[in-house]
């Protein structure tokens, strides 16, 4: 029973990319086996969309070019996609990695020949897969359960796609950077959740952005969450609502600019600060 075969079978080193791909599968499985992450990260935007769509069912959020009413569900769909980007990327990874640092997962990996870049690929891949699934679910629920009219032009969907990809990658990278802040895995939730909540409120995810005071909108526009929401509104809301934005127009270049800057900054921060474990010097 306890004898082991002495012969070695394969001899070449597995590549960092192949290991990264293997990490993605491993990470996605682990994500869906964690009830916390499934509820508070994955299903949360769908839950909120349902609440908003139901609570404000009687309210009118504007009219499109044909005079059709923009419902609460339609109005909140872009916001919920932005919320999903923030939750799946930043909240998920900041807590996940802080917990992994606290519970010994990273220490174990540090003792193996797994390249750090493969670990990163695994985390980013997990965010992409779970975030995209979540976005499809949110859009599907909006369209089927709340009859939100979806855009019919390829341009609109292309916008959804790039705003999502840029947003979710930025959010993930910032999550990795933020995971250094909590001193222990146990305090991770307490540190990360308030940041995420405040960001969502000031960025007009829960509240109508156009109803926030101008100065608060300007503060929110420093952060990428508001821009993910701008981008999603540009793609999914009728153009008649563009007048509610700052400058009374959709600002897609702004989305690319601000989010891109945070992505680059976050990447640099990650590369400079990420360590498997806190060495004691």
């Amino acid at each position: 029973m306890t004898s082991l075969t002495a012969s070695a079978r394969r001899q070449q080193h597995p590549g960092a990319l192949a290991l990264g791909a293997a990490r993605i599968g491993y990470e996605v499985r682990a994500y869906f086996r964690q009830p916390d992450s499934v509820f508070f990260t994955f299903l949360f935007p769908v839950l909120l969309l349902t609440i908003f769509a139901t609570a404000f069912a009687e309210q009118e959020f504007g009219r499109d070019a044909d005079g059709e009413v923009v419902t609460a569900a339609a109005y909140y769909l872009p916001s919920m996609l932005a919320a999903g980007i923030l939750l799946s990327g930043l909240q998920n990874l900041a807590i996940d990695i802080a917990v992994e640092r606290g519970d010994g997962t990273l220490k174990r990996l540090a003792g193996t020949p797994l390249p750090v870049v493969s670990y990163f690929i695994g985390k980013l891949g997990q965010v992409l897969v779970t975030g995209a699934t979540q976005a499809v679910l949110v859009i599907g629920v909006a369209a089927i359960a709340f009859r939100v009219p979806l855009p019919t032009t390829p341009e609109a969907w292309l916008t959804v796609l790039w705003v999502f990809l840029l947003g979710v990658l930025t959010s993930a990278v910032l999550g990795i950077a933020l995971s250094r802040v909590p001193r222990s895995g146990k305090s991770a939730t307490a540190v990360v959740i308030p940041i995420v909540l405040v960001l969502q409120f000031v960025s007009g995810v829960y509240l109508q952005f156009s109803l926030l005071p101008e100065w608060l909108q300007s503060i929110a526009n420093v952060f990428p969450v508001a821009w993910a929401a701008h981008g999603m509104r540009a793609a999914l809301l009728p153009d008649t609502l563009a007048v509610l934005e700052q400058g009374e127009a959709w600002n897609l270049p702004g989305v690319a600019l601000v989010s891109g800057a945070w992505l680059v900054g976050g990447l640099v921060l990650c590369l400079l600060t990420f360590r498997w474990i806190r060495k004691d010097g």
Partner: peptide, 27 residues
């Protein structure tokens, strides 16, 4: 390396975990 303690979440099965870690090594 077998470290002194482990408190990991453990969201993989025993076989999955070993298969996964086996991939890190050349032989």
């Amino acid at each position: 390396i077998v470290l002194q303690s482990s408190g990991e979440t453990g969201n993989a099965t025993v076989r999955e975990q070993l298969r996964h870690f086996a991939r890190f090594y050349p032989a």
